[in-house]
Amino acid sequence: MAEYLEPKILYAGDSAVIVEFGDSIDMKTNAKVQQLRRYIECAQLGGIVEMVPTYRSLAVYFDPVEVEDVGPFFERLKILAQKTKGEISEGGLTIVIPVCYGGEFGPDMGNVVSHTGLTEEEIIRRHTAPDYYCYMLGFTPGFSYLGGMDETLATPRLKEPRKVIPAGSVGIAGKQTGIYPIESPGGWQLIGRTPLRLFDPEGEPPFLIDAGMWVRFQSIAKEEYDEIAAKVAAREYKPEIFPKSGEAE
């Protein structure tokens, strides 16, 4: 279970191809995925429809009419893939996600307190401490797979999943933490909610988080939540985003 010596080109039908770097979830492999995506964007290969970065591979969707010969096209992708080094910090951005923890927004905070044996304050401290790495998006529009949660916060999913979880809910499921971008059913332990809209189909841009970004949770009070929510509704809120390496703090 690790990184392959050579990136693999995997056939995925007549309109997609997968470049796979390894068979493990780790930041170095994922950094290669993000790098390859940037290399391909810069190389301006014709006929590419879109790219989907995931934990350890990049899917390249192409138009089989515009790509005249797939052989050389795949070869080109492979050469670019071989050039990736897997440096993590390069080009990384951090986004701050304000979260109002506990109370009405975190109905399962009690479960996390009793499962972990930590106080609510300590849970919030540990949850806001790290910068989480966004490996990929998937599952629902705008759902980010985050890595890096303090394992002392790990709490199993609810036995009875909820039918409706409001958009913006922040939860814990096992060793994972995440944010529900749209209202959906689910079994995560909800500990708080963000007033930001992670997915706004009419927003510019429609999604706040991209694969390869870092996510930092910031604890806010209910008053601040309401203030930000009002700004978000009026499309006046600008999320705080800064380069990972060049941060002032």
């Binding site: 879109e50 989907v52 969707y61 998937g138 599952f139 629902t140 529009p141 759902f143 997915f199 429609p206």
Partner: peptide, 10 residues
């Protein structure tokens, strides 16, 4: 709606 699969959008 092509172009947003990387963001989880079907």
């Amino acid at each position: 709606r092509w172009g947003y699969q990387g963001k989880g959008m079907p």
